[in-house]
């Protein structure tokens, strides 16, 4: 594409953006983004939805999952809450990130994020006798003291500390993916993560 799509700083979009080409977001997008080119979220950009692209670089704010086939870069000034999945990921000093991060070897197929939350594979450590469900229902099963899988959990540059009232099994990366502590069960919040796009920033 000779020409990139630019969502300027004075523009708000509520809805889906998809297609061929590159995308620069300096404005506000509330709705899923799926393009096969490069996605740049500028310093003034705000995306409250998931983003899929070949390369994603973020200098602004994203509340939603990022999935790229090539690479994801969180630049200085980026604020991202959500899962990240790409073969190559970089997080610059000064970027704020909270979420589950998955990288893969080059060429390895990176599965699509949707519905593949790795925490669901964790078995309850405290109750080994109880058989873990083969497929954990999304919203209601909250295994006591879940063991974190090997997924890397990153909290770069000191995000705000979790409130003292947070339950012991609370997991910052997962249960706070929607950016608020509303007292619901972690698993419920996990199930609600797909709805972050509806929240205002």
């Amino acid at each position: 594409m000779a020409e990139a799509t630019v969502i300027g700083a004075g523009t708000r979009i509520r809805g889906r953006i998809h297609g061929d080409g590159d995308l620069v977001v300096d404005g506000f997008v509330e709705g899923d983004v799926k393009v096969n080119g490069e996605v740049q979220v500028g310093a003034s950009g705000l995306v409250a939805a998931s983003i899929e692209g070949a390369r994603i670089s973020v200098r602004g704010a994203v509340r939603g999952d990022l999935s790229a086939t090539v690479s994801i870069h969180l630049e200085e000034g980026a604020r991202v809450v959500g899962a990240i999945r790409a073969p190559r990921v970089s997080v610059a000093s000064g970027a704020l990130y909270r979420g589950v991060l998955h990288t893969a070897a080059p060429g390895e197929v990176v599965p699509v994020i949707a519905g593949s939350t790795p925490v669901q594979a964790a078995k309850p450590q405290a109750a080994p006798a109880r058989p873990a469900p083969a497929v954990a229902p999304k919203a209601f099963v909250a295994p006591p003291a879940p063991v974190r899988p090997a997924a890397v959990t990153v909290a770069v540059a000191a995000p705000p500390p979790p409130p003292a009232s947070a339950p012991a099994i609370d997991d910052v990366a997962e249960s706070d993916a929607d950016g608020e502590n509303d007292g619901t069960m972690p698993a419920m919040r996990r199930g609600a993560r797909g709805q972050v796009a509806k929240k205002k920033n």
Binding site: T5, T11, I13, G15, R16, I17, H18, D20
Partner: peptide, 14 residues
């Protein structure tokens, strides 16, 4: 703001 050829937006643009 530029919506380039090849890109589709379904929703509301303000």
């Amino acid at each position: 703001t530029v919506i380039a050829p090849g890109i589709t937006i379904e929703g509301e643009i303000t």
